[in-house]
Design a protein around this nucleic acid. Sequence first.
DNA 1: CTGAAAGCGCTTACAG
DNA 2: CTGAAAGCGCTTACAG
Lengths: 343, 343
Amino acid sequence: MVTIQDIAKRVGISKAAVSLYLKDPDTTRVGKDTKVKIAKIVEELNYRPNVIARSLAMQKSNSIGILVPFEGPLFESTFMQQVISGIQSVLFAQGYSIVFLPVKGSDSRSMVRHQLEMGLGHDGFILMGTRYCSTKDMEENAKELSRTGIPFVVLNMPEMKLDINQVIYRDPPEINIFEQYYRLGHRDLVLIGGRRGSLENSIYIDQFKKTSKKWGKNFDSSFILHGDYDKDVAKSALLQYLKSGKKVTGIYCLTDTMAIGAYAAIQEFGLRIPEDISVVGRNDSFFVSIMSPPLSSVKRPIFDEGVKGAELLIGELIRSEKPRKVFLESTLVLRGSVQAQKV
Amino acid sequence: MVTIQDIAKRVGISKAAVSLYLKDPDTTRVGKDTKVKIAKIVEELNYRPNVIARSLAMQKSNSIGILVPFEGPLFESTFMQQVISGIQSVLFAQGYSIVFLPVKGSDSRSMVRHQLEMGLGHDGFILMGTRYCSTKDMEENAKELSRTGIPFVVLNMPEMKLDINQVIYRDPPEINIFEQYYRLGHRDLVLIGGRRGSLENSIYIDQFKKTSKKWGKNFDSSFILHGDYDKDVAKSALLQYLKSGKKVTGIYCLTDTMAIGAYAAIQEFGLRIPEDISVVGRNDSFFVSIMSPPLSSVKRPIFDEGVKGAELLIGELIRSEKPRKVFLESTLVLRGSVQAQKV
DNA sequence: CTGAAAGCGCTTACAG
DNA sequence: CTGAAAGCGCTTACAG
């Protein structure tokens, strides 16, 4: 490996002069002739600075570590794609590298601990919640990060009562899909949730219950199906529900992917969308418009979440801003999959 | 920041002892009592090693830099998602971090040069071709990487006559879609290519020409439409073709996304798939199965490309293997969008 | 069993 | 205008 020392020796000057020139070719601290010589040797030896050494000396690595307590392929989820795209758009513009740290461990606590173990030296961190993270675990993770003194931001988690950077989704009142269904005259609703017992599920089950009560409809836990975030699981769960003779006219799927499964089940059972059953998905994935009929979907501003998160981090990093929380609101994109029900 | 020095001072020993213990808690080079003390202080001060300093000292960073000469969001393309997933599966298992270097510059040469400028110090590189890279530029990039002496692998590019690690796609003879169409009785074919003048286009235009000649069909450059890798562009190009009164019974789209546009154009023009027009896409994207009818598609082993690429790199890194080339073959996944044509 | 020292490749005051 | 030196936080021979 060619070092600054090699260049200095060849030119017959000190390392400092080479470093100065490399940092700023217009510097006045290096003579004109010397500059020419340095440039020549740099070219000749194909010298490139060692970023690691520079990072150590400058106490700044220009890199941000991404912490995602999740085993398996990170980039297959459309959520990750969008949030990372948002992060990338901000960080690259500021000259930061994005570093994905290897995952190891059995639960979100040990995974993040291991990633931190591998990753100190980065200028900041983005800690991302996944469907498998409990809020409690993630709060512990956030506390541990706080103790390092390194700026960080938490994404994709419910609000935490900690003084940290966080971007949080909020469903505005009109995004209560159950309320919308009841208003449209629907009376038999089903929620296709993700992982059984997940925090996400419990939030929506709760909403489902309360809204049903408000409308004087009785609520039964059989109205909750578990799709496990998978289209085939969602399909068979719904198919079984239909075959059991239970009635349903409105379905809310917590991801668009599970809505694909719901479509398949409904078609296989010989019913029509939206004439017999209305369907709403969540995430407004790029493929919903090619489904037939196009799927109505709750759109979370995921790209914006990445942007805001990266901006909070950059704010703390560059302008020493205090940690704060940013709230983003979801919207409902209505398409052909929903119809009012004659009561 | 808490350093190894702080620990040593508090315990009253040398940095070396702390380092030794941290590296291997079972070491015999540190006394039992001392170990206990170190552990206590480490916990108390919430010490974590600085990976940058360690990388410099060990001359190994356990990180691989990803070089993609492409402006804009990297992770929105389904190609990137799959290839990165493959890369991740191998590199994480080996304990390597994956680093995306910020992009700057106007062409693939200057982008890669800039990324290298930012990225030396990583243990290896993965250089990925994009649709906008000329083979010539990428060969220059590869040569420049060679000169650094750092192991690297080139993905998503036609074979280069250089002694480097490279993973290359090969369409086996049966993946000549034009040949398949002719055999099925089709006589009026259209190719919807990507960017005008791109290398990818020219390869398939060439195949189209040769195959037509073989079957005694005249070839006309009007049979080539330019979809620019965009569904709307593809749609309007095909719609214009149909409206001009030209005949077509078989279409090959170089991406599935453009096939979505082709479907829309065909439906808007009042024709049916596959009764009137057959369509074949490329990449076998996850959404093709929900198109109606499901799209037949040429599947490239993109995930495998990532896996093989990472394996070549690891091979050179860990086992000092020589650079070599790996070939992967595409396959055709037939679905409802293709039908034989009565001649 | 443990310490003092050199070194990784840079940057940045400090001198002159 | 330029050089010698200290330092970033680690690891790794080398001594004892």
